[in-house]
């Protein structure tokens, strides 16, 4: 029988944390073989969080690399005052912010990167799909995603990080408080403000879309 099937979410979390603590204890004791297991556990989560903050694949890749290297080299500095995962996410956020700061000087997006590319004979190099039959649904889905990403990017940093951790990554309010070293009321207040801001942005978009549909 699958052990996970038999556990309720709380028990599953406790079991996961026990495994994590054991891996950390072994790594701190010099057993480097367990490092791969920690990488396996965290790399995708680190990458996703970093990507949502930086909105850049190269930056997310660099951040993931830096964070995992920090875990490997600085594991002895982890004192266990908070959960190991909270420590990992704090390092991820700091590394992502550093990337964002280094990029701030040059906020302009290179349009050239988005233009079609051609081979020497002048043919388009990318495969061009005919989506003209599905414009409505395709446009709607892509537009929605674009609007959401733009709106999230416009959120102030303090609200954005709470929103990403709580609503996108799905951490509990308590866990977000632990990662960001914030009180529960502060987490709730920032998240509520973020949700209100995003709701307003989406409302403008959907109302416009609906009025266009009615015409």
């Amino acid at each position: 029988m699958d052990l996970k099937m038999a556990l309720d979410p709380k028990e599953e979390k406790a079991a996961e944390k026990a495994i994590e603590d054991e891996l950390v204890r072994k790594l701190q004791a010099g057993n480097m073989e367990v490092f791969d297991q920690l990488v396996e556990r965290f790399q995708k989560k680190i990458y996703a969080l970093s990507f949502n903050l930086t909105r850049n694949q190269m930056d997310a890749q660099d951040v993931t690399q830096d964070v995992l290297l920090t875990l490997f080299r600085k594991i002895h500095t982890f004192q266990g005052k908070s959960a190991f995962s909270s420590w990992v996410y704090r390092i991820t956020l700091n590394a992502s912010y550093m990337k964002l700061r280094s990029r701030k000087k040059d906020q302009s997006v290179s349009i050239d990167e988005l233009l079609p590319t051609f081979n020497k004979a002048g043919f388009q190099q990318e495969k061009v799909q005919d989506w003209s039959e599905n414009t409505e649904s395709l446009l709607f889905a892509n537009e929605t995603r674009g609007i959401i990403q733009k709106a999230v990017d416009q959120l102030p940093e303090k609200e954005k990080v709470v929103f990403l951790l709580r609503d996108v990554e799905g951490f509990s309010t308590e866990k977000v408080g632990e990662i960001l070293e914030l009180t529960i009321p502060a987490v709730k207040s920032r998240l509520h403000r973020a949700r209100l801001f995003l709701r307003k942005k989406l409302s403008s978009f959907f109302e416009e879309y609906r009025s266009g549909e009615d015409k």
């Binding site: 995708k44 990458y47 929605t144 990554e169 209100l196 995003l198 989406l202």
Partner: peptide, 18 residues
């Protein structure tokens, strides 16, 4: 709409694959 906003954002942003 407040609930939908949260759901839409989660659906669109939580599918980041490495």
């Amino acid at each position: 709409t407040y609930k939908t906003t949260t759901n839409l954002c989660r659906e669109n942003l939580s599918k980041i694959e490495m």
